[in-house]
Design a binder for these strands. Structure first.
Length: 278
DNA sequence: CTCAGTGTTCAGTG
DNA sequence: TCACTGAACACTGA
């Protein structure tokens, strides 16, 4: 579930819990799927006793910088989250819900016990998330394969147009491609295309100059706005398609009364508004 | 019981 | 090699 804004919220949760603190111990679950390329025991040895000097994000990947390498790298997949005691989970549509008194949460894959008594858990119910170890995450796969992060480095209109023109696939599929724009997922792609007035089935290289400029501007706008409200859906503007795209409800309409249709584009369920997108 | 799903990867194809 | 498509992955909640 988590796309860029939800991941940024997770980064902030981890940062406020762990930045500047020493990891006194870890509790690692046995899981040879979520732990990718590193055994839980080796992960534990790499982090125990280390101090957290930064918590960073690019696209949907989050990593910790420590006072010694290698460093841990996390991906939430569809259902991952960082949790601390006494806080609600990321408001996932189908994610785990745990009462304030439950700790560690269900589906915890690693719990960090920090100096001063703080706790931070990485949870992952459907096991599509990943825990990795990297010597230098930014220069190694998978982060080195990512495209621009729309929050950190949205390209200039000219550079954006150049990259888009190189792509012959459907514009929705291009937006979802992490090597094009890192952090965009299904709901952001639909929201951006709706607000830009572009049919998701159009081929990226066929967009004209005005459409390309609108697409870039809305991509930056939607993500900045979602991050500004800490990815809390109830605080997204009421006019956003987001609030009305779910359930494939017959007769679903936008806030201005236009019918919403659901189709499959680039292999993903796509909500769009034919009256507003061409 | 069945199936979609705020994601990623890989085999197969062009 | 590049690029795209669809299936697989895993499993909860509706």
């Amino acid at each position: 579930m988590p796309e860029l804004p939800e991941c940024e919220r997770g980064r902030k949760i981890a940062e406020s819990a762990a930045l500047g603190r020493r990891i006194e111990s870890l509790v690692c679950a046995e899981d040879d799927i979520v732990y990718d390329g590193v055994a839980p025991e080796a992960f534990e040895r790499a982090l125990r006793g280390r101090r957290v000097t930064a918590v960073k994000r690019r696209g949907k990947h989050i990593w910790f910088e420590l006072d010694a390498r290698p460093w841990p790298l996390f991906h939430f997949g569809m259902t991952g989250a960082f949790r601390v005691p006494g806080e609600d989970a990321l408001p996932l549509a189908t994610g785990p819900r745990v009462g304030e008194t439950d700790w560690p949460p269900r589906f915890t894959k690693v719990e960090l016990r920090l100096e001063g008594g703080g706790r931070l858990a990485f949870t992952n119910a459907r096991r599509l998330g990943r825990i990795r170890l990297r010597h230098d995450p930014e220069t190694e796969a998978p982060i080195s394969h990512l495209g621009f992060d729309p929050l950190l480095d949205l390209p200039s209109p000219k550079a954006f147009a150049t990259r888009l023109a190189r792509r012959s696939g459907r514009v929705k599929g291009v937006l979802l491609d992490q090597s094009f724009a890192a952090g965009v997922g299904n709901w952001i792609a639909d929201e951006v295309l709706y607000q830009a007035g572009i049919d998701p089935r159009r081929r990226a290289c066929d967009l004209d100059d005005a459409e390309t400029r609108r697409l870039r501007a809305k991509l930056g706008h939607v993500i900045r706005r979602a991050v500004a409200v800490n990815a809390e859906k109830s605080r997204f503007p009421r006019t956003w398609l987001f609030h009305r795209r779910w359930g494939k409800v017959a007769n679903a309409r936008t806030s201005s009364g236009d019918p919403i249709e659901h189709i499959t584009v680039a292999g993903r369920t796509t909500a769009w508004v034919p009256a507003r997108q061409s």
